[in-house]
Design a protein around this nucleic acid. Structure first.
Length: 269
DNA sequence: ATTGACTCCTGATGGC
DNA sequence: TGCCATCAGGAGTCAA
C-alpha cells in the first residue's frame, strides 16, 4: 500500500514528534517481519533520534549511534500516541520517547521491515542500488528514456522498478500513465521520447498532488495522527470500474506482472 | 542482463 | 449465516 506519498506523509507526521528525543524503551511484540528484527533493536534504550529522512519507500531514522531503516510494506503505518495508550492488534513495535510519546508501528501483513544499520544507512544493501528519487533532478526525460530504450517489459513495470526510479507503486504508476496518455502494457522501448518526457512530468505531478492530500488510503494506511490520506477521491483510473472521466469510455482492467492495472483504451495508446 | 513467477502474511470481499 | 476462493498498495529471490 504505502508508496512514496504515504511514506513521505508518515515522515512529515512523525518528524516533529520524534526528532531530538531520547529512546526510553523499546517494545517488540512481534519480531517476525519481512526480515526478523535484529537483537540490536532491543538494545536501543538511551539512544537519541537525530532526524527522519526518506529514500524511496524507506524511512531512515538517524540515531546518535547507528540508524534505523523502516519499510511499511503493503499494510504498514505509524502513529505517535502518548506512552500507555493501549496497543492495537498487529502493533509490532513501539519506541517510547523522552517526551512521553510513543512511536507505534502497525503492520497486519508483516511485509514491512525494521533494520538496524551500524554505519551509513544509504550503503545498506537494500538501499545502495536504488534508482533516483522521482521528485529530484536526477529523474528526467533523458534518464528514463535511456532506461527504456532497450527494454521490452511493459512501461508500467519499468516505472515500478525501484532500481530505475524509487517510490512509484501500483496505484501511482496507473495514475501517471493515465495522465500521460500511455497504455500500461506498452513495451517501454516503444514509448517515444516526447511521451517519456510527458510521463516524467505526470509522475511528478501525481506524486506531488498525492503528498498534498496526505497520501491514498485504500484499507490500512493512516497518517501519523490517525487520519486517512485523502488522495483516493482524486484517483482518476486506479480501482475505477466505471467510465473514463474525460471521454466516457469504459475503463479497462488488466493484470500486468501480477498487479492490477487500469487504463482508458480511448485516451491511452 | 532482463524477465516473469513465486513468496512472505492477514484481512476484506464476493459467490454459493 | 457460514464457508471457501480470490484478491490486495511491496519487492527480494530465483530460474529461465
Amino acid at each position: 500500500m504505502p508508496e512514496l506519498p504515504e511514506v513521505e506523509t508518515t515522515r512529515r507526521g512523525i518528524e516533529p514528534q520524534v526528532c531530538g528525543q531520547r529512546i526510553d524503551a523499546v517494545v517488540l511484540r512481534e519480531t517476525r517481519l519481512r526480515w526478523p528484527i535484529s537483537a540490536e533493536v532491543a538494545r536501543l534504550e538511551g539512544r537519541r533520534i537525530l532526524d527522519v529522512s526518506r529514500r524511496g519507500k524507506y524511512l531512515i531514522m538517524r540515531l546518535d549511534e547507528g540508524s534505523l531503516i523502516w519499510h511499511l510494506g503493503m499494510s504498514g503505518s505509524m502513529r505517535v500516541l502518548p506512552v500507555g495508550t493501549a496497543a492495537q492488534l498487529h502493533e509490532h513495535v513501539e519506541l517510547q520517547l523522552g517526551n512521553g510519546q510513543a512511536l507505534k508501528f502497525r503492520d497486519p501483513r508483516r511485509f514491512g521491515a525494521l533494520l538496524y544499520s551500524a554505519t551509513s544507512p544509504l550503503q545498506h544493501p537494500l538501499l545502495r542500488e536504488l534508482g533516483p528519487e522521482p521528485l529530484g533532478d536526477q529523474f528526467h526525460a533523458e534518464y528514463l528514456h535511456r532506461c527504456c530504450r532497450q527494454r521490452s517489459a511493459a512501461i508500467k513495470n519499468v516505472l515500478m522498478n525501484s532500481h530505475i526510479v524509487v517510490g512509484v507503486g501500483n496505484i501511482y504508476a496507473s495514475e501517471a500513465l493515465y495522465r500521460a496518455g500511455i497504455r500500461p502494457g506498452r513495451a517501454a522501448r516503444r514509448v517515444s521520447k516526447p511521451r517519456i518526457a510527458k510521463l516524467v512530468e505526470a509522475v511528478r505531478q501525481t506524486l506531488h498532488s498525492a503528498i498534498a492530500c496526505g497520501g491514498t488510503t485504500l484499507q490500512d494506511f493512516t497518517q501519523a495522527d490517525g487520519n486517512p490520506g485523502y488522495f483516493r477521491q482524486e484517483l482518476l483510473v486506479y480501482g475505477n470500474k466505471a467510465d473514463c472521466k474525460v471521454c466516457g469510455t469504459p475503463i479497462k482492467h488488466v493484470v500486468l506482472g501480477q498487479r492490477s492495472s487500469y487504463y482508458c483504451p480511448q485516451c491511452q495508446s
